[in-house]
Amino acid sequence: MSDLTIPSDGSEMSDLTLRESDVYAETPELHERIDRIGFWLVGGATVMFFFSFVFAYFYLRSLDSNGLWRPAGVDPPTAYGILIAAALALSALAFLYAARVARQRGRGWGLPSGVALLLGLFACVAQAVEYAHIPFGPQSGGYASVFFGWTVFYVVIALISLYRVEVAFAAALRARGEEDGAVPEGLTPAAVYWAFVAGLGVLSWIILYLV
């Protein structure tokens, strides 16, 4: 508002001008920026989504309604929890490394993103296997409700987030023969977002298994 120009002549209808300009073409920087800000916002939405489950966890725990928050024996197997959290953390590190390599050298991101993809999928499969070996069911009180709701939707969101990991990996496969192997746009924001989601997975391990 400070640099506002008030037309001196009242008869001037508009001083919004359409001028020739050379900045019209979209640049990779613009696309990177769109991806970065988009992932920040999607990250905010993801946080609010899991915030609901965190809130449910602590709220129901503090109420302990009818004494059925967590009856005896409602304990998820610790080994699975550690396995899933570790796989997620390693996957995130691998993909961050892939983005870093791609940024610095413009190639060689294929292997680490493949590893990240495998580890991420492994975490999701391990979660599914855990349901088969768990000593309680979804109807076993408040904790069991939160545990099942949270982990199921965590897997759904992790699978959606792995889409960009897969895209990076597939782009690397396709770029194998080419000399200048085009780095997919938005690899760094995607890596940060996947690390963020994996971090939420580790956080859910801390809350659901440790606290």
Partner: peptide, 10 residues
């Protein structure tokens, strides 16, 4: 599950 059932821990 029983997120919202007070008689079952929700």
């Amino acid at each position: 599950t029983s997120f919202f059932l007070s008689s079952a821990g929700g």
